[in-house]
Design a protein around this nucleic acid. Sequence first.
RNA 1: CGAGCAGUGGCGCAGCCGGUAGCGCACGUGGUUCGGGACCACGGGGCCGCGGGUUCGAAUCCCGCCUGCUCGACCA
Length: 499
Amino acid sequence: MAQAKKITPRAHDYSEWYNDVIMQAELADHSPVRGCMVIRPHGYRIWELMQRALDDMFKATGHQNAYFPLFIPMSFLAKEAEHVEGFAKEVALVTHTRLMATGKAGAQALMPDPASALEEPLVVRPTSETIIYAMFAKWIQSYRDLPLLMNQWCNIVRWELRTRLFLRTTEFLWQEGHTAHATEPEAEAEARRMLGVYRTFQEQWMAMPVITGRKTDSEKFAGAVRTYALEGLMQDNKALQAGTSHNLGQNFAKAFQVKYQTAPGGLDYVWNTSWGVTTRMIGGLVMTHSDDNGLVCPPKLAPVQVVIVPIWKSEEERGQASGVGGRVKTELEQAGIRVELDLRDNMKPGAKYFEWEAKGVPLRLEIGPRDVAAGQAMAARRTGGKAPIKLDGLARTVAGVLEEIQTGLFAAARERPEAHSVRGVTKQQFIEFMKGAGGGGFAYGGFCGSGGCEAEIKQETGATVRVLPDPEFRSAEAPTTCMWCGKPSVAEAVWAQAY
RNA sequence: CGAGCAGUGGCGCAGCCGGUAGCGCACGUGGUUCGGGACCACGGGGCCGCGGGUUCGAAUCCCGCCUGCUCGACCA
């Protein structure tokens, strides 16, 4: 009785389940370097599909890609006071340029050559504001050069102490947009616009519902005037920040002397924005849709959208099923669908089903003798349900099914945050909600705006303000008092325990 | 970065009162199978996480380190 390694059920241990899903789906693996993962082909393909969709959206909104260096002079980081403070504790440094042999064995065999010490260490970028705005200062002369809309796809290093695959790793991949504008309102509009782009992507491609809003001062990006964010609610009722967009004001423009000549002839600092999403989204994808059988991947981001499994007993049947499978594959491929035909003869069909399910393939087509005879294929959805479909017009039918699965996943995912949100909470309800058996979720309530309340709430319940929600997410009745201290409320807030 | 647990063929584990490594799955070959994780036979595969030490002899005992997991302080 062959039994492949099981995935730990979600109900038993959520984080073990999360790791199992990633390993079984072959999305990523641990590397020998602490806190650094290897993104395996199946996981990297998801990232490529994410990149393509987002990149098209960035281009459509007028942004251009460029590439800036991995190394940043240490002194650059020091130029914006809040920014340094935010990142100083987690940067990797390059201090030497040569190694020398010591004559010892093992890890001690080599050491940095003291003679090669850099006069000024280089920081491995934790984010690129500093080096990018240093360049913007060279390129921007007049208001005619604005707005300058740029983006780069790259890797980032932040020396994290506690890591999780995709959710928090020392090195990760992301995209960082950086723009410069002539006026504050334009920068604000850009920061908001890109937040909207992210929301569209996360809802329509990832089928992941998010709430958007502004971060409190204690949660905002170091160096930003305002930070906006998107927050999703995972299956364990913890929130995941899935993207951020910052209005940087003139903070970096002043630090890096990014000035432009105005139309009337004056001189002014530019207004900047920056915004990013990371490979963390893959973790969000896993924790939004997947189940105890493994990954569930929305069709638009599935590396393999359809797997064809031929079924046979005799050699003759094998030839027929494989033949039909091959033709189906070609037909689907011509329709732009990502297909795999599983011809392996050392596995029984059932074993193949389990494997492809673990990898998140949305639709499986089984083609056996009965189907060949009937001119059909059995279509099994990853999300449940199995029914025959005619081979005539198959590509169109399959495309329709994939679309249904995509919208079905989003609809199902939307129920979760709705079912696990409470509005207009009192302090007692809040504590019960966060620490009780229900497992928490999004708690909406009045907030006085004080960092003291935030700190106390975090201390007592582990919850933090995820966002001060945008109008479309706010409660019908605006709260009047802080749910924690009872003082007048300055804004409704959404609290949750977060990743 | 602190506390606890763990690391043995690809995966999951046993062996740990010292005597030179074993099981299940996976893998290879042959055959029978194939509509939800096949079976039989034969076979290949292990610096026992790394480095030191104790000992005639270390997977096993001692010390240091590395990596992972869980929990705390910090963060996309």
